[in-house]
């Protein structure tokens, strides 16, 4: 059936292409990660960095439990899931870089706490961690928006 040659004119083809563009755009809009998710994840990461740097071991479990709950909540609300591009070198390097930065911030926080004996260091490091993750979520949303704007074949 699909091999059957069917004649359609350019006007009909144009209408079909327009319909495809509209649908693809709508799908991409639906798969846009919500802004609250970026805010929530950045706060949770910030709290985790603060707790570790401040040595508050009794509370480590809070952000560790909160993170999967937030992700599960988001997944159950979404009616679509975006296509995940195959892992490339750039993504792996960015992920390793992020982990290194977070570990660096934790050690910087621990060092500042032991040096000055106050919580200023851990708080500052957690704020930096929060801002980095938030900036990443904004970048992700911007990339997604670019993809939506570029739905031109």
């Amino acid at each position: 059936m699909n091999d059957k040659k069917t004649e359609i004119n350019s006007k009909e083809a144009n209408i079909a292409l327009e319909s495809i563009r509209r649908s693809e755009k709508s799908s991409l809009q639906q798969s846009m990660p919500p802004s609250w998710l970026g805010i929530a994840i950045s706060i949770i990461v910030g709290v985790l960095v603060f707790l570790i740097a401040a040595g508050l071991r009794d509370y480590y479990f809070l952000p560790i439990i909160a993170l999967p709950i937030i992700i599960a909540m988001q997944r159950s609300k979404m009616k679509v899931s975006a296509r995940v591009p195959t892992t490339n070198k750039k993504t792996v390097i960015a992920l390793i870089g992020l982990i290194v930065i977070m570990i660096g911030l934790i050690f910087a926080g621990i060092y500042a706490r032991s040096l000055y004996g106050t919580m200023t260091g851990p708080i500052t490091c957690s704020l930096i961690a929060t801002l980095i993750v938030y900036w990443m979520s904004i970048s992700e949303r911007n990339e997604h928006q670019k993809k939506i704007d570029q739905v031109i074949r």
């Binding site: 079909a16 319909s19 649908s23 975006a82």
Partner: peptide, 15 residues
């Protein structure tokens, strides 16, 4: 069906 395919094309899956 064209709309179904074009809605699914940029996604992993959809409800």
């Amino acid at each position: 069906r064209l709309q179904i395919c074009s809605l699914l094309a940029p996604l992993e899956d959809a409800e």
